[in-house]
Design a binder for these strands. Structure first.
Length: 485
RNA sequence: GGUCUGAUGGCCGAGGGGUUAGGCACAGCUCUGCAAAAGCUGCUACAGCGGUUCGAAUCCGCUUCAGACCUCCA
């Protein structure tokens, strides 16, 4: 099965062919760890987690690198800007690395709850200062950078003369010149669109490292070029990130890689779209973000209730990654209901009684879902396929359709593969150890006897009490199903 | 101002020249002691105006509206 991937470079879907099969190199821009992870962070994490899982399912050996930006970027494009991490540290009277560590932990916890698999390598920018300095040296030697007052800047004009700056985002240097802001304090740069490779640190700047040029810190875009190269090589397959990083971040990465090596590093660029709220991008700058913890606990005035991590994951997967996804309580609640119905059917499979012959063809569940995902990660269609089968599973449970023992096992296996392995969804409300389920079964048997004696008072009391404890009873003709709420 | 993207039923969201996406909500029916669950049925949309075509939600043009990027941002 061929995986089709939308390459931002060509703006078309292309057949994915790895550079060195069966190996695939995947690099994704991770978070800057200076704040609690929010819903916006969940989108790329879940998207590229799905990609990671799909590539593995296709038989590739994937090295997935997702960085942690702990060096911090400048708050403003000026020489006296304060490091984001440093600012936070000053406010909280903590070491900058303490802040970075705290939010790194928070990020990992949240991702784990969302069922996001840990990447193969999670390199930290602060641990790769040497590699970044080496990369700057190479760019300087190649003649695409210049020193200025202890800082080093990338020479966009020089680069643009030999290569094309702006190919990813579709911008031209001319038009950038006319709109780029002229900021005070950027006098060290020759052109407004030149970007920093190394910044000299002001005396009060805490996060600093020695370099041939000054005590300072690496530029904003350097770490991804340096770390992707270190772990994935001069050329690698896929680079992903949010659409908002396309310019300038990814454009600069391309320039840095090309300037230092003479060729591009990345073969396929992928960009996930944003999560919006009231039609506007959810993000730090607008201050309209909802943290994942707030989502999980419901503690935010925008939230009508708490939503479970898996509901969030399902919500994200129900939209295509290149579409904006609009947040609302209605949309989250709909996702929650849908997810619960999906998982209820999934649990139901084990309770279906096999029959002599099958009235349904279960052979294509997995392949249909794989086909959808191979079409540029079309998870909404894969989920639609699953819902077709939810209906079938319920009919099987009602006896309206039948399956043989073999088909039932195949159905169960395929469903598990798609739901758990590919989509990364897992049941949350299980917690039913043998003792718990045994007790519930026993109580339901007592209730069944009461029902047979038409003792509705007792039977309703049992049902109500169980309901109060979170056990939902679903009566059938002969007995009852139950699930934990 | 420049570059780009989008506008789908009550809501969320796929698709993308002729054929039911799917989910949620809603209504009716079946089942049922009641309720819930489940099943069946119904509601059937593609911003507006032109054009191409046997046929357009889908292609082209214009208009309106919205958003993203051009500054750190997932």
């Amino acid at each position: 099965m061929i995986f089709k991937i939308f390459n931002t470079l060509s703006r078309t879907k292309e057949d994915f062919t790895p550079l060195a099969p069966p190996h695939v190199g995947l690099y994704v821009c991770g978070p800057t760890v200076y704040g609690d992870p929010h819903l916006g962070h969940a989108r790329p994490a879940v998207t590229y987690d799905l990609l990671f899982r799909l590539l593995m399912a296709l038989g590739y050996k994937v090295r997935y690198v997702r960085n942690i930006t702990d060096v911090g970027h400048l708050e403003h494009d000026s020489d006296d800007g304060e490091d984001k991490l440093q600012k936070k540290a000053r406010l909280e009277k903590l070491e900058p690395m303490e802040v970075a560590q705290y939010y790194t932990n928070r990020y990992r916890e949240a991702m784990n709850m969302l069922g996001v698999l840990p990447p193969s390598i999670e390199p930290q920018a602060s641990g790769h200062i040497i590699e970044q300095i080496e990369l700057i040296k190479e760019i300087l030697e190649a003649g695409y950078a210049y020193q200025s007052n202890g800082s080093v800047y990338f020479d966009v004009d020089r680069y643009n003369a030999d290569h094309c700056y702006g190919k990813l985002s579709g911008r031209s240097v001319e038009e950038m010149l006319s709109v780029t802001r002229q900021l005070d304090g950027s006098g060290d740069k020759r052109k407004s669109y030149d970007f920093a490779l190394w910044k000299k640190a002001s005396p009060e700047h805490i996060m600093r490292w020695p370099s041939p040029w000054s005590d300072g810190f690496p530029g904003w875009h350097l770490e991804c070029s340096a770390m992707s190269r270190k772990y994935l090589g001069d050329r690698f397959d896929i680079h992903g990130g949010g659409m908002d990083l396309m310019f300038p971040h990814h454009e600069c990465e391309i320039a840095q890689s090309t300037a230092s090596m003479g060729h591009e590093a990345v073969r396929y660029w992928m960009h996930n779209n944003m999560i919006t709220i009231d039609g506007r991008k959810m993000g730090k700058s607008l201050g309209n973000f909802i943290t994942l913890e707030e989502l999980f606990t419901g503690r935010n005035t925008l939230l009508e209730k708490a939503y479970s991590p898996m509901t969030i994951r399902f919500f994200i997967l129900q939209a295509h990654y290149r579409s904006t996804l609009d947040f609302s309580n209605e949309a989250l609640s709909a996702a929650e209901k849908g997810f619960e119905r999906l998982m209820a059917a999934f649990d139901m499979i084990d309770k279906i009684k096999p029959a002599e012959k099958s009235t349904v063809d279960v052979s294509a569940i997995k392949s249909q879902c794989m086909e959808a995902l191979c079409d540029d990660l079309n998870s909404p269609v894969a989920i639609a396929v699953l819902f077709e089968w939810v209906k079938v599973i319920n009919r099987l449970n009602d006896g309206a359709d039948t399956v043989t023992d073999g088909d039932l096992r195949s159905l169960s296996e395929q469903f598990r593969f798609v739901v758990c392995d590919l989509l990364g969804l897992s049941a949350e409300k299980r917690g039913d150890g043998e003792l718990t389920s045994g007790l519930i079964e026993m109580i339901l048997q007592v209730r069944q006897q009461a029902k047979e004696q038409k003792n509705w008072a007792v039977s309703d009391k049992i049902r109500d009490e169980l309901s109060r404890l979170g056990v939902v009873v679903k009566d059938r003709k002969d007995g009852a199903d139950w699930e934990l709420k």
